[in-house]
Computed example of a mutant assay.
Amino acid sequence: MHTPDNSHLYEEVLVSPMYLAGSNGTGDAGFAPIAHWPHHYLDDGPCQLLVTSPDQRIRIGWFGDDFELWKITAAEDATSAPRWTATFNHVTPAEIVAGLTTALAHDYAEAAASNTNGRFLTGPLPSWVDTVRPLTDAGWTRDAGAELGTVEIIAPDDQAGILIDKRGSGPYRKAVELWAGPPGWGTRAEAVFTARTPSHLVAATAAVMADSAPVIRERHQIDRRMEHLVTLTPVAPAATAAEPWVSRSPTPLDVRRTAVTQAVHRAARAPRTAADLRVMAARSRTATSTRAGAPSAVPAAVARPLLSPSAPRRSR
């Protein structure tokens, strides 16, 4: 990470592609879809925050000091062993985690309304095609050189992919891995799903990776080793290089951008409540209207995770 030695490093920028944006320090985006579920703060343990469905069958754990920052599970009931597990490491953008938590919130609400067990316990489909469809629809292609018994779909820039491992047996084996970035502790994002994870939940997570919308980060949050792989666009317009001392009146576009940025800061520093979700919705509407009037605007999705060590899993 950059040494924070000047204000330029704290400038907010839009980062694209999103899957290479890394962490911005908190997990707000990942928790936002389930902000209305019970929160359990466990400051003394490795799991610092546990958010559960009302019946505790779904559990989303935040391990703020670990390499595997997120651990998400679903079980038949509150006391059963997990049917499946998904983990996200410290480099994974929380926006990607939100793809899974959004799908889980929808599945749980649907199950409660219909008085059924819920799709989050249905298990994977026999074919891998639907699992990767959001990626192939976005132009990702199959790697012909993948190992026998595996399927790998690679992004057009070769900097992200999904690996489906059909070898081995057992419900707790690692069957699917979403990855992004070059190998390395601070550069490789990894999301791992065990064998019985429902296909539509993996697909929902993958769909976020396929989304072309950028995300907001501060410049110092971008690892130096990633700078040549991403596009950074300042959120706020800078003064001209020729006359940096010139002060100008803010335009309506500047005002809208400032309002969005302030809303993001407030949301990042306060617990998620129903009011926070209304702020997020308002920000999304503002971003949409801003895009209509200018080519560069703040996207609707913003995020937050943390850091910790481990060796890279893949050598790609």
Rank of each mutant, 00 (worst) to 15 (best):
A203Q: 00
I222H: 05
E218Q: 15
E218K: 15
R225G: 06
T197M: 03
R225K: 11
P182D: 08
T240M: 13
D223P: 03
P244V: 10
R219F: 14
P198R: 01
H200Q: 07
V208I: 13
P183W: 06
E227N: 12
F193H: 00
L232E: 12
V235T: 06
G184N: 05
A191Q: 00
W179V: 05
G184A: 04
A191S: 02
W185T: 06
H228E: 13
R196C: 04
L201I: 03
W185R: 06
L232Q: 12
P183E: 04
Q221P: 05
A189N: 09
T240G: 14
V208K: 03
A238L: 14
V208G: 02
R219W: 09
T233M: 08
Q221D: 06
P237Q: 13
L178R: 01
A207T: 10
E227Q: 13
L232N: 07
P214I: 07
T231W: 10
A241V: 12
V215W: 09
T233Y: 08
A203F: 00
P214C: 11
H220P: 08
T231D: 15
P214N: 10
V192R: 06
H220W: 15
A195R: 03
R225L: 09
A204L: 04
R225V: 08
R217Q: 10
E227P: 03
S212D: 15
T233N: 09
V192P: 03
A207E: 11
L178H: 01
T194H: 02
E227T: 08
I222W: 05
V215T: 15
R196N: 08
P182V: 05
R219L: 13
A239K: 11
A195V: 08
F193I: 01
E227I: 10
L232V: 09
T240R: 14
L201N: 00
V192G: 06
A195Y: 02
A213R: 14
V230A: 09
R217S: 08
D211W: 06
P214R: 04
E243N: 11
A210K: 04
A213H: 12
T197Y: 02
R225A: 07
A189Y: 07
P183T: 07
R219H: 14
G181C: 12
W179T: 06
D211E: 12
E227K: 10
L229F: 12
L229T: 10
T194K: 01
T231E: 11
A204K: 02
A241E: 08
A191I: 00
A238R: 13
V230D: 03
A239W: 13
A204S: 07
E190V: 11
A203K: 00
V192T: 13
R225D: 10
Q221A: 07
R217I: 06
T205Y: 02
V208D: 00
P234R: 14
P234W: 14
P244Y: 12
S199R: 00
Q221F: 10
G181N: 07
P198S: 02
A207Y: 07
T205G: 04
Q221V: 09
L178T: 00
G184S: 07
H228M: 09
I222T: 10
A206M: 02
A238V: 13
W179K: 04
A241R: 09
A207R: 10
V192E: 05
T231Q: 15
H228C: 10
A191E: 00
T187A: 06
E227D: 11
P198K: 01
H228F: 08
G186F: 05
W179P: 04
R188C: 02
